[in-house]
Write a protein that binds this DNA or RNA. Structure first.
Length: 360
DNA sequence: GAACCGTGGAC
DNA sequence: TGTCCAAGGTT
């Protein structure tokens, strides 16, 4: 590498870290080098805004102060504490990893990027983040913020959705990272992307790099980074059979490979189109006999619930049961009282419906 | 490589 | 209102 490049890269990291010291937010996971807490914060913050993840981080640290505490917990309680954050496999993987760290590693997290990368739920970004923040390893932590900063300042036009992008952007960051303080550099890149080099309408007049930024000089802020479109969400039509008997409600854990795995909802009939009458649900899984177990209340509204890849159109068919008689609940379905239901992890949609309908 | 996996906020 | 996005990872 020519000497001029070395000089230029050092200048970049120095200016960036200068900016960081002046502008960074005071966030709780930056007050520690405990790999457990850093890991916890990184898992929570995956695809999640700081304002949304913050209360969850504080609750998790409060309830599970150490990895041993988390390992001892039931997965269901971990999912319940995670309720509302989404991408629930993060919580299940986190719990699995806590048990592995305690059971196989004597309660100590791997102290290197390559070791951390082996953990379930820890990919290249998260491994680099923990390795640098907790152990000062000089590996670049390249997240969405870093893609944006690098693409704009250096004019990198590779589609960040393309498979080659990760290698290219990681190499670019690796060239910039200072050996003497990789942790602050990584924090600074991420923080700079989050609060100065924002996705939409960044205020470039305040930016310390506005005299050398490719995007600013060429008016390309809104076009960089290049990101190809995502596929449109598919429509799904869900019909829940909500059996209520003497203040108890029948619920079931979602165990299939599908959305909300590990969470609880009701017996469900999925249809290809929106069901308008009880007859539309016949022959769709053998649950229709449940609708005869009591007095049926036909839903008067459809909930539309958006997921990242699905648009759910959901109807709740309530069945007021006096006596199940010869009707039996399907496998895995049980009646729960209010306190039990409160303790179960549930999708936000289900939690909202229950609160509206029963326990408001 | 592309699809999948949640939720809430900003525009 | 619909779209995009947010400290990604797994299959």
């Amino acid at each position: 590498m020519p000497a001029s490049s070395v000089h230029k890269d050092a200048t970049f990291s120095q200016k960036l870290i200068q900016w960081y010291h002046r502008h960074h937010r005071d966030l709780p996971w930056r007050q520690t080098t405990d790999p457990y807490k850093i890991w916890l914060s990184e898992i929570i913050l995956q695809q999640t805004r700081v304002v949304q993840g913050m209360p969850y981080y504080l609750r998790f640290v409060e309830k599970y102060p150490t990895v041993q505490d988390l390992a001892r917990a039931d997965e269901q309680d971990v999912l319940r504490l995670w309720q509302g954050l989404g991408y629930y496999s993060r919580a299940r993987n986190m719990h699995y990893t806590a048990r592995q760290v305690v059971g196989e590693f004597g309660g100590k997290f791997p102290d290197s990027y390559s070791g951390l990368l082996k953990l379930k739920g820890v990919g290249e970004y998260t491994a680099a983040a923990i390795a640098s923040f907790a152990f000062n390893e000089a590996v670049p932590a390249v997240d969405g913020n870093v893609y944006r900063v690098l693409a704009r300042i250096f004019g990198i036009k590779t589609d960040i959705m393309h498979s080659s992008a990760k290698r290219e952007f990681t190499a670019a960051a690796q060239r910039l990272i200072p050996a003497d303080d990789p942790a602050t550099f990584n924090q600074a890149m991420i923080e700079f992307g989050a609060i100065q080099c924002q996705p939409v309408a960044p205020d470039c007049l305040l930016c310390p790099f506005n005299e050398s930024c490719y995007a600013f000089e060429n008016g390309m802020q809104s076009f960089l980074p290049v990101k190809s479109k995502k596929a449109k969400a598919r429509n799904r039509y869900l019909n829940y059979l909500v059996l209520e008997k003497g203040g108890l409600i029948a619920m079931k854990e979602r165990i299939k490979k599908d959305v909300w795995k590990g969470l609880y909802d009701f017996p469900i009939i999925e249809t290809l189109q929106e069901a308008q009458a009880p007859e539309d649900l016949a022959g769709e899984g053998g649950l229709e006999s449940l609708m005869m177990a009591g007095r049926l209340i036909v839903p008067d509204k459809t909930y539309v619930h958006l997921l990242s890849h699905q648009k759910l159109h959901v109807k709740f068919w309530q069945i007021k049961v006096e006596d199940m008689g010869t009707n039996v609940l399907p496998d895995g379905v049980s009646f729960y009282n209010e306190d039990q239901i409160d303790a179960l992890p549930k999708p936000i949609l289900i939690d909202t419906f229950i609160k509206e309908q029963f326990f408001s």
